[in-house]
């Protein structure tokens, strides 16, 4: 990107990672939540009756797989909502804004610092789910899952896009909020559209195919790009420092 300083971007990411590591409650929350989302799909896979798998395997394994998409949709909310208002409450925002960092570098760095652990945990949970399926599920169930190529691709492709959406909304709320608690509560609203989308797919209103996954991916990508640009524009230094816009 033109005029984008990657060293400053990396500095923000590195500092955020350090900060997470030092705050045990952040790490614990970050790790526990995805594991909770893993329980339902694993249980669902193990309780699928063998006869049903033979007759309609795809239907039975669809919901557990889609359920995994909730992880990148819900997990980054809290962290993203903390990004700007958290700095303000700590009194670190103004010193930070006095440095040469640009709005885009700041937003990108903060966003990446939430996205990286989110994706690491999301893909880690996916891997655990597939491993558990391969090792412990009935063979008919595991083969039914591993033949769902379109869905597995959708899991991989849609996860960062859903996470980016949640992060963008969380950060937008964080820019405007005056309190961390308010920001985190409002940030959870970001999960509503992905949850509705997953429900629509799960109940069969739209049949999940590779084409549908790709269309969703493209639409989400366009929405994410727009959302990130809006957040960057909202990052007006004067508003952040004084609460009013020039």
């Amino acid at each position: 990107m033109k005029n984008f300083n990657y060293a400053r971007f990396s500095a923000v990411v590195k500092k955020e990672m350090r900060d997470y590591r030092r705050k045990r409650s952040i790490v614990v929350t970050m790790v526990i939540l995805p594991f909770l989302f893993l329980i339902e799909p694993v249980v669902a896979i193990f309780v699928v009756p063998s006869t049903s798998v033979v007759t309609g395997a795809k239907t039975y394994v669809l919901l557990p797989i889609l359920y995994l998409l909730l992880i990148p949709s819900v997990m980054p909310n809290m962290l993203a909502a903390f990004t700007v208002v958290g700095e303000r409450e700590q009194g670190t925002l103004e010193p930070l804004l006095t440095t040469p960092i640009s709005q885009r570098e700041f937003i990108a760095g903060k966003g990446a610092a939430v996205l990286i652990p989110t994706m690491a945990l999301t893909y880690g949970i996916y891997a655990l789910f597939l491993l558990a399926t391969e090792l412990f599920a009935k063979s008919v169930v595991s083969s039914a899952i591993f033949t769902q190529g379109a869905l597995l691709v959708a899991l991989i492709v849609l996860a960062p896009l859903l996470a980016s959406w949640s992060i963008a909304v969380g950060m937008a709320v964080s820019v405007r909020a005056t309190e961390i608690r308010v920001a985190q509560q409002l940030g959870t609203l970001a999960s509503i559209p992905p949850v509705i989308l997953i429900l629509i797919l799960a109940v069969g209103v739209i049949h999940p195919t590779l084409s549908v996954a790709l269309i969703f991916a493209l639409v989400l990508l366009a929405i994410d790009v727009r959302a990130i640009r809006i957040v960057a524009r909202m990052m007006n230094r004067e508003r952040l420092v004084t609460g009013t816009k020039s």
Binding site: N3, P100, I101, S102, R104, R233, M235, N236, R237, S246
Partner: peptide
Amino acid sequence: IQSTNDGAATT
């Protein structure tokens, strides 16, 4: 970005 923010996008 330049017109709406405070010029930070300019390096």
